[in-house]
Design a protein around this nucleic acid. Structure first.
Ligand SMILES: [Zn+2]
Ligand SMILES: [Zn+2]
Length: 699
DNA sequence: AGCACGCCGACT
DNA sequence: GTCGGCGTGCTC
């Protein structure tokens, strides 16, 4: 066996762990890691992959197989730097996800799709249009002077950025304390040092608005990165970043993969937000990856939030992260007055006027007063549609999704024109026209239960016929234009009230809002997850923080079926510390995060029998190898389940979970690794196995 | 993810 | 007898 010519190792976007080895092409010894190559895969396929750093140890039996030859080399020089490869390698390792597929997740699609060859060619065929980002005209101006708190926070951040060391910082600042301005000026100082900056926010709509502020300050040095930017446009941004033309990126979760070099500052704004966790394929947390990247790049990482997650705050308590606080709102707007209303209270028989059940008398009065004084209000309910449960009152037939088995939600004004009456599955999107006839018995007594934003808006208008109200959710704010227009209209005072979902709570600035009504404050509390209380506290704090205008105290009404729950009580009192104390006490005994580490194995397939069988088999294997693991690690590892998923069926696939938990991350990872190893040899029978490290919404 | 192989029902 | 349906497994 001649082994003078050493093979190259290629990362390919196939669901196989590790790299594939190839012979370099004839007379091509300048092949370096980071260059793209075209290689034969299987019997008749050619794929684009990236030459990777050779593994330290190679499986000896690998050497037996005859290696195929690289078909062609696509780049003259590496397009993936050593630092970036190290980052992706670490991501791949942590999430048990193949390197090649991690690469696919990170790179612009065009770079690995087989049609493309040279980057220049792709970009040259595209007509050049200059990107501009515009701030909506009625948005408040950037402040000329800073508050005392902003000044002191900035001075620390500047020190950390110029220190050239990994510096994790938690910026605990109440809503409206002026964090955005701090981010802009911190980015400025990173730039002044020749470094770059990465700003992450939870939603595309927020990124699109925030980028305009940065654009005004830094011009073409700023780029926008999110999943709706695709094709040549994404590639252009990617290339401009690598060329150093773009040095600040504003984006969402996926922007963590923007190929910035020499990063001085990474901001994760609203770090507690679930949107930073991807829940398909590579299930990464952009917040956790920001910390990893910060470590590799010796950057300052700012985790900003009015309600830092327990996971983040635990690091503050341990002294691993630095804590900076901003307790005062700009213009000294006081925190809103929050009233808690018990929805279980019996209603008066003769209410005048007759109110819908979700509108308590207190809320009614508050809305009335707000409208009378020409002020604005916002109603929050985290559910789209008109009714969540539609059934036939003759035979009891309930309308369910044939693919997910959950009940269909009635939408009375669906579609871009808002003129379609549909039953929609909120899990997979399946829908059918809402006809007034029962498909089971032919009867016409179709009824519905459960509220959504559509119904709240409709009944709000019934009670207040002159109100100018609009809905603000994914259904109505599908396009960027519509969203901007509505926000504009509300800021200008053309709209009195907004009825919205989660969308309404994130970041948007409402300068004249005097009343916030939370329709169902304990809704998120019923989600079967170890962090349901935390999510509830965060959501309520965030939505309440919208209320209040310059110098004038806002008012918040939270309606709830369990107003005595600590997450709701402390949210009303703006008491983060007390909530934290109680929630930590709840979790510490069960070793839930941050006191323990979770890895979830997700089994899914078309035949429930097979899914169930494989997940039980996995549990058996885990039990068998557990003693070996416990010899190496003193901390216990628990195997929980298998059990049906929170959504037991999605798009015709049955889902089961096997949850691994331990106080020691190493121990739980070690068990997961061993288990996956053993599972790789058992026949899958159409069952897919996915790994979710640090799952949210489980337990 | 593709793509091939293979094992069973229905069609020349 | 073969054609093609999808269920299953592999890719250096
Ligand atoms: Zn019926
Ligand atoms: Zn469905």
């Amino acid at each position: 066996m001649e082994s003078e010519i050493s093979p190259v190792f290629v990362a390919l976007p196939i669901p196989k762990q590790g790299l594939l080895a190839y012979m370099p092409p004839q007379g091509m010894d300048q092949l370096e890691p980071g260059m793209r190559v075209l290689v034969p895969v299987g019997l008749r396929r050619r794929m684009i992959g990236v030459v990777w750093d050779p593994p330290e140890k190679r499986d000896p039996q690998d050497l037996d197989i005859e290696l195929k030859e690289v078909s062609s080399v696509l780049d003259e020089a590496p397009i993936i730097s050593r630092e970036y490869r190290r980052f992706l390698q670490a991501v791949s390792w942590y999430y048990f996800y193949p390197v090649g597929m991690t690469l696919e997740e990170a790179l612009p699609n065009l770079l690995l799709s087989s049609r493309s060859s040279s980057i220049e060619k792709i970009l040259n065929t595209r007509k050049k249009t200059r990107v501009r980002f515009q701030i909506p005209p009625s948005a408040p101006c950037r402040p000329k002077s800073l508050t005392q708190e902003q000044i002191s926070v900035l001075s620390v951040l500047k020190k950390r950025i110029s220190g050239n060391l990994f510096s994790p910082v938690v910026l605990h600042g109440v809503t409206g304390s002026g964090k955005t301005e701090v981010y802009i000026r911190a980015a400025e100082s990173a730039l002044a040092l020749g470094k770059t900056a990465l700003i992450l926010v939870p939603e595309i709509a927020l990124a699109s608005q925030l980028v305009a502020w940065f654009y005004n300050a830094f011009g073409d040095l700023v780029g926008l990165w999110h999943s709706k930017i695709t094709g040549p446009q994404k590639l252009k941004t990617w290339q401009d970043i690598r060329d150093g033309k773009i040095r600040i990126i504003v984006g969402v979760r996926s922007a963590i993969f923007a190929p910035l070099d020499n990063i001085g500052l990474i901001v994760v704004d609203e770090e507690h937000d679930d949107s930073f966790k991807q829940d398909v394929r590579l299930r990464y947390s952009a917040r956790d990856l920001a910390l990893l990247l910060g470590k590799l790049q010796n950057a300052t990482v700012v985790l900003g939030s009015a309600t830092p997650s327990l996971t983040t705050y635990e690091k503050v308590i341990k002294g691993e992260y630095e804590l900076l606080t901003m307790t005062r709102r700009v213009h000294d707007t006081p925190l809103p007055k929050v009233e808690l209303i018990d929805l279980r209270t019996k209603r008066k028989k003769k209410e005048i006027p007759r109110l819908p059940w979700w509108m308590s008398e207190a809320l009614y009065k508050a809305i009335d007063e707000t409208l009378h004084s020409n002020e604005q209000l916002l109603l929050f309910l985290n559910r789209r549609g008109f009714a969540t449960f539609v059934f036939c009152s003759d035979c009891g037939h309930a309308f369910r999704c044939p693919h997910c088995e959950i009940t269909l939600t009635l939408h009375k004004s669906f579609g871009p024109k808002g003129n379609k009456e549909l039953l929609v599955c909120h899990s997979c999107g399946f829908n059918l026209p809402a006809l007034p006839v029962c498909p089971n018995c032919g009867g016409q007594a179709i009824s519905s239960k459960g509220i959504g934003t559509e119904r709240v808006l409709a009944e709000l208008v019934q009670v207040f016929p002159n109100i100018r109200a609009e809905r603000f959710d994914r259904d109505t704010m599908g396009s960027k234009k519509k969203l901007i227009n509505t926000l504009e209209g509300f800021r200008k005072g053309d709209i009195d009230a907004l009825v919205g979902t989660q969308m309404i709570t994130k970041g948007h600035d409402f300068p004249n809002l005097s009343l916030v009504g939370v329709i169902w404050g304990d809704q998120s509390l019923h989600y079967p997850s170890f962090n349901a209380s935390e999510k509830t506290f965060q959501l309520l704090t965030q939505v309440a923080g919208r209320a209040g205008r310059r110098g004038k105290r806002g008012r918040v009404i939270i309606q709830s079926f369990c107003p005595e729950h600590y997450s709701i009580v402390y949210a009303c009192e703006h008491d983060y510390e007390s909530f934290l104390r109680e929630e930590r006490n709840k979790r510490v005994g069960h070793f839930y995060p941050p006191f323990g580490h979770l890895i979830n194995l997700i089994f899914s397939g078309k035949l429930e029998e097979h899914v169930k069988k494989i997940s039980f088999e996995a549990q058996q294997i885990a039990m068998r190898i557990l003693p070996k693991i416990q010899k190496r690690y003193t901390k216990a590892v628990e195997i929980l389940g298998p059990s049906p998923g929170i959504r037991p069926k999605v798009k015709d696939l049955f889902v089961w979970n096997l949850l691994l938990k331990s106080q020691s991350r190493k121990a739980v990872r070690s068990l997961a690794e061993g288990l996956l190893n053993k599972l790789s040899t058992v026949p899958k029978r159409g069952v897919r196995i996915e790994i979710d490290c640090d799952p949210t919404g489980l337990g």
